[in-house]
Design a protein around this nucleic acid. Structure first.
Lengths: 215, 215, 215, 215
DNA sequence: CATGAATGAGACTTCATTCAT
DNA sequence: TATGAATGAAGTCTCATTCAT
């Protein structure tokens, strides 16, 4: 996956085939299996026959769906990215304020990490090796940053640096949580500091960060 | 970033042997070779015969110095850690203020990344796979954080979260720089935001972050 | 090159079935597809799924017509042999003299090779791997040789050696032509030398070889 | 080996290494093993692990000497070619007359085929798949042809066609012999016909072909 | 019959590690 | 101690063949 990543939407090649229902199910099974493995071990250590075994299919079946090992891992990245987009869209539903949205996003990621270590590990690993994943997340964050700037809630010198900060701190916190260094209200603390870094006053930051998460 | 660089060489078993000078040189050559490779490719992709070739020794020679592949990589981590200690010691020389020291540390890491991508890549990769490395950095940062808190310059709710933030943001910025997203005064911007996150007012943060780096 | 083309179709098991027309068409499509592939690559390198793709049928369909990969290739040999019989029958129409018939046969094969490389390649490959093909050609040649001997036009010590010579030289020339080493009147030159080898005087050989080919 | 065959002399990479005696022995063992296999089965059917087994080395050892499967087969072609050059040089030692040399060459190849089927099979297979081999043989034959033409012993319209004829007939005869269709004095008969094809009168051809072979 | 997903044996290749020299 | 040949387990990928739909 170091390769220049062609733009692969990749999910409706034979929409009209007969057995295409089963096909999609198997493919999904393979990607899910791979995701479970990514959650457990380093990407480079995953053998394809493990993926096959985890998905309960034969060794060669993988190659009915992916031309190469890298294509499998790429599909994993894409799948996870899709999930994020969904998850994040839900969060954004009602909230208008950019700073608030940021806070909610950060906290949701941290909280989910605490609850679902597998998910968090998979995410962290994929962000590390799949550049595309990073930029997908960036898109969402960027929107919130700009909204906050426009509304005057946020102040920051450079958008790129701000984006970096949000992403790095969130993933850093997720890693901490996964590694067992979670605290009470870890999510709130992290969000608070991020907001301060983005120019929100400590008091206001504490207030925004403390708001209850949407159900 | 603190503490007078502890002597972390940890590898003088036979201080009085005859060929012991040469032995150390060869060993060092191997570790350096490995470091150069780590700078270029993912740790998991490095083959031992590449290390041997890079160090211009034979395949089997490696096993006169290391029992296993992992031991080689471990040594790489230790070597890099030693270098940090050196690098950081220099920074510590004259500055007393914790916030100031933090700022200088962050900026030095970011600046060096801009100048020496190989170094930065190696560091980022090693932090990722070698847990020990991370805690070594943490020690230094922690000292500065506490000093800042004692002096009243910094305010933060939780030390662990603050530590995470400093480390994540710094490595995040390094990654950005390595990937070509560097800006003018990137280091200053990042330090500024980190200070704000740690409770320093925007004005004061700007002032501290803007101070010239020690030669 | 002799004998009125024996009916070598050998594959009419159910002559009265309903879908039997279509069945034969599909089968023929498969064999033709295989032939096109044989013309392009070495027999051992041809994968069945390529045959299926080339014939625009599904993977498994092949097994409704052939029990095994080798059966497919065997059918290819048989099909090509049938074609030869046809091609050669045409030549036989009017000519009586064995030497003349030989000359015409050789020249036709060489000329067609120049015009249709695919055909030549397929033939050369099949002769190489399918022994049956070789003996089928031999039958035709043998007749002409004997006729020539009886008529006193040809003189040769051993029939087997003469046969070898005719076949080897003809296929050798075909290979040359396919590989781009064709000359003007290549066919005539080759026929001439073969006739000389078979005891025809140079002058007479030249005369026979130069006769125009039947339309 | 379909690739454009780089000019590989390939036999003195590390002439000064310590264990290079053993190295050469192992390499030779591998090529010999491969040759034995080529004599038994089609080139495309030879698996590398068979070569390893035949040479009594481990699977991976092959890759200490060859980068890829094709390189192994290429080495086989080169080895056989070297042997030919040697064999043929010996024949040429004393004989001056081109026609005579041709006759001797053809007969030696046919006779050796009768005695050593493995050798013949290997040669036939390699000529078929390794174009370089063919041109190497051609060089020798060409010299004799030209000498014969100059001396007036041979008469032929085109050198290329004559070359084809000599090579095709000789290999054709070798194949016959290997397949058990050998006759008494097969070699003499073939040489005789080839000479006739090259313009030698039947009487003279018989005389030249019948000369005893050099010890 | 056609389809094409699934199978699984088997091929190629890599590489950490051992060991005789 | 240095060398580098040998090892063999492990992994990636191909493809003939089967079978439920």
């Amino acid at each position: 996956m170091d390769s220049p990543a062609p733009p692969l939407e990749a999910t409706e090649p034979h929409p009209l085939t007969r057995g295409h229902k089963k096909r999609e199910r198997t493919r999904r099974g393979l990607v899910d299996a791979a995701l479970r493995l990514v959650a457990r071990k380093e990407v480079g250590e995953i053998a394809l026959f493990e993926v096959a075994a985890e998905a309960a299919v034969s060794n060669g079946t993988i190659y009915n769906y992916f031309r190469t090992r890298d294509e499998v891992l790429e599909a994993v990245g894409i799948a996870m990215a899709a999930e994020f987009s969904d998850a994040i869209s839900v969060l954004n539903a009602d909230v208008q304020c950019g700073a608030q949205r940021l806070s909610i996003g950060v906290r949701m990621f941290v909280c989910r990490s605490a609850v679902d270590h597998q998910w968090a590990n998979a995410l962290l690993r994929i962000i590390h090796f799949d550049q595309a994943m990073r930029s997908r997340l960036a898109t969402h964050v960027m929107g919130d940053l700009r909204e906050g700037l426009r509304a005057g809630t946020l102040t920051y010198a450079d958008e790129g640096v701000a984006l970096d900060l949000v992403l790095s701190c969130t993933t850093g916190a997720m890693r901490s949580v996964v590694q067992g260094r979670a605290l009470v209200e870890h999510d709130v603390r992290v969000a608070e500091m991020i907001l301060q870094a983005l120019g929100v006053t400590p008091a206001k930051a504490r207030e925004i960060a403390a708001k209850p998460l949407p159900a």
